[in-house]
């Protein structure tokens, strides 16, 4: 099942077109075939194990901070 929240790209394997996406509680791999220009530090949304879009970092961080505060 996908996570409908932005994750942060922490590693890119350009040869395999794979990104490691960090969701704090877990990390998942996703294909970068649709967005080969994605880079480490970008916040992304993943669907069916594929990176489908980036989310501006300020928007992503603000949202994740709100989620964290809600969980506290």
């Amino acid at each position: 099942m996908c996570l409908a929240i932005p994750g942060k790209v922490i590693e890119i394997d350009a040869k395999r077109q794979l990104a490691t996406v960090d969701y704090e509680a877990e990390q998942r791999e996703a294909s970068t075939a649709l967005l080969p220009e994605v880079k480490v530090g970008d916040y992304v949304l993943v669907q069916a194990k594929m990176v489908v879009q980036t989310v501006p970092a300020d928007e992503a961080r603000k949202f994740l901070d709100t989620l964290r505060e809600g969980a506290a």
């Binding site: 649709l34 967005l35 669907q47 069916a48 489908v52 879009q53």
Partner: peptide, 8 residues
Amino acid sequence: RQAGVSGD
């Protein structure tokens, strides 16, 4: 903003 979508 989506560059692509799942086609499954």
